[in-house]
Every structure is written in structure tokens, then in C-alpha cells.
Simulated scan of single mutants.
Amino acid sequence: MGISVLIGSFIGGYGSHLLPEHGINLVYGILAIAAVILMFIPKKGIDDVRIEQI
């Protein structure tokens, strides 16, 4: 996973020069909205585990 993060960081650093400031803020806003939506989606199967198994 470390190599993927390193490569993604270099690609993101290079790509930030190609976008204007407004475009970068738009990308951050979209990612923040996606994170909020994913936090409200319930996880399936978590309540199916019995207490004895925990």
C-alpha cells in the first residue's frame, strides 16, 4: 500500500499544477461530500454477530 500512496502522491502533486485553484477546491468538496454520504450508509451484517462470538 505504501508504494501506491507514493505513486498517487506524485501524480497528485503533478496534477495540481494543471488545475486552477477553483478546480482543486471543487475536487476537495466532492471528496468531502462523498465521505459524508459513505458515513451515513449502514454497514450490512454487523448486527448479525452474536455476543458470544465477540
Rank of each mutant, 00 (worst) to 15 (best):
E21S: 13
V5L: 15
I51R: 10
I11N: 02
E21K: 11
K43E: 13
A34Q: 09
I33H: 10
Y28S: 11
I30M: 00
M1Q: 09
P20L: 03
I37V: 14
Y28K: 13
A32H: 12
I7M: 13
H22E: 00
H17S: 02
I41Q: 06
A35N: 06
V49S: 03
V36A: 03
L6P: 12
I3L: 02
I3P: 08
A35Q: 09
V49E: 03
D47K: 08
S16I: 00
G23Q: 02
L26E: 15
Y28G: 15
G12N: 08
K44D: 14
D47P: 02
Q53H: 13
A32L: 08
I51N: 15
G8R: 14
Q53D: 06
M39V: 07
I51D: 14
H22V: 09
L19F: 12
L38V: 09
L31N: 10
D47H: 01
G8C: 08
A35C: 08
I11H: 11
V36R: 03
S9N: 14
I46M: 11
G15V: 01
D48S: 05
E21L: 15
G23T: 06
G15Y: 05
F10Y: 11
I33N: 12
G29T: 01
N25M: 04
V27T: 10
G2W: 02
V36N: 02
V49P: 12
V36Y: 03
A34E: 02
I7D: 09
F40G: 06
F40E: 01
E21R: 13
I37E: 05
G12V: 08
S4E: 03
Q53A: 10
D48L: 15
S4M: 06
V5E: 15
I54C: 12
Y28E: 06
H17V: 01
G23N: 05
H17Y: 13
S16L: 08
Q53T: 13
G13R: 12
D48P: 04
V5P: 00
G45N: 05
I37W: 03
G8D: 11
G23A: 12
S9K: 09
D48T: 05
I7T: 14
